[in-house]
Write a protein that binds this DNA or RNA. Structure first.
Lengths: 201, 201
DNA sequence: ACCTGAACACCGTTCAAGT
DNA sequence: ACCTGAACACCGTTCAAGT
């Protein structure tokens, strides 16, 4: 009945939770396995049982980031008022969710982008694909009158994702303000829709 | 006449040179001031005279990266054969230079994107602005028949830059292959041109 | 102005050992 | 299966001192 049971029982989850907070509040540089262990009241070697190394923890964070972002995008689209459910409105809502996520979790967003698709980081890549699937469904819904083949949908989604992601980077790196980012997103979606129309067979 | 003069005379430049190589060959994680100092045959405290801390070195690398990229873009456009100097051809050449740079210097590209616009990293931001100026001139040249106000040029350039940069990220993170990146760039520029036309007053 | 070298306070990683 | 704790080999940063 010790208050600190030998088996923490929840260490992995707690480390991730705490790591996300550190990431938000102090950045990747300051994220240390040893400090995480200390804060969890566990020895410095303990995290090793859950994450083979620091990179594995970062990968796990990126993976969770992609899933959270996908959920945020889905929620933004779902809660969109009926009169805003135009093609533009839908894509704009998704893009905004993206930007908000990046603005509130800049270092996590950077981690997600940086995470290489190694053999070891397969879960990260899969999570990125899940987000891509969400985005593809959305683009298909928004632009469905214009085309109906899946390949076109995926190419356009890739393009939109890249663009939105680029806007996020400009914002988080301070190249443009949040307001400018919002305006740029508007431009992006206008151009995207207009350009997609004239480039779709 | 010692072979190791007390004043190295060129330490800053040598550290940067060597750092770029390490960045390319082994990644940011492996970039250490102490190792750089060792390789330069200098004490571990010496870099302090040129870079206040590790972050300052990374900022200097990012700054140089932006200037190299700007030069690469300019060269790509300049050496473009006459019969390729269409609006599409010009933008495509610039985008390709961008992608090539990122493909060959993924960690440097990540550093450039990550570099926050702090008060301390003003030079990085200025270098980013110089690249933006280059890009604006290019977009203006390519699309000049369609508009003539500077504000439109800058908004469109920002959009194109964000998109190209997003494609770079997808590539360097292994989300898409270099071939897919190339195809995506084609799509991007087609959509960009078509969309820009119908969105320009 | 630029560099040295000791000192300090951290790291990540490994691994035998414990429960 | 999960965690401990010592050990190792690195770091970045600071700073008085040297040239």
């Amino acid at each position: 009945m010790s208050r600190q049971p030998f088996h923490h029982g929840n260490l992995r989850a707690e480390l991730l939770e705490r790591a996300e907070a550190v990431l938000r509040e102090r950045g990747v540089e300051k994220l240390s396995l040893r400090e995480l262990a200390r804060d969890a009241g566990v020895s410095h070697g303990a995290p090793r049982s859950h994450f083979i190394d620091r990179g594995a923890l970062l990968d796990a964070l990126a993976e969770r980031g992609f899933d959270r972002l996908a959920k945020a995008v889905e929620a933004a689209v779902r809660t969109l008022p009926k009169d805003s459910r135009t093609d533009f409105g839908l894509l704009r809502a998704a893009g905004s969710a993206y930007l908000d996520f990046a603005a509130h979790n800049p270092d996590l967003a950077a981690l997600m982008v940086a995470a290489k698709a190694d053999d070891t980081s397969r879960p990260v890549h899969d999570a990125a694909l899940r987000l891509f699937t969400t985005m593809t469904a959305l683009v298909t819904t928004a632009l469905s009158p214009r085309f109906n083949d899946r390949e076109t949908a995926e190419r356009l989604t890739l393009l939109l994702s890249a663009t939105v992601q680029g806007i996020c980077s400009l914002m988080t790196s301070g190249r443009i303000s949040a307001t400018q980012g919002d305006a740029l997103l508007d431009d992006a979606i206008h151009v995207f829709i207009a350009g997609a129309v004239s480039n779709t067979p």
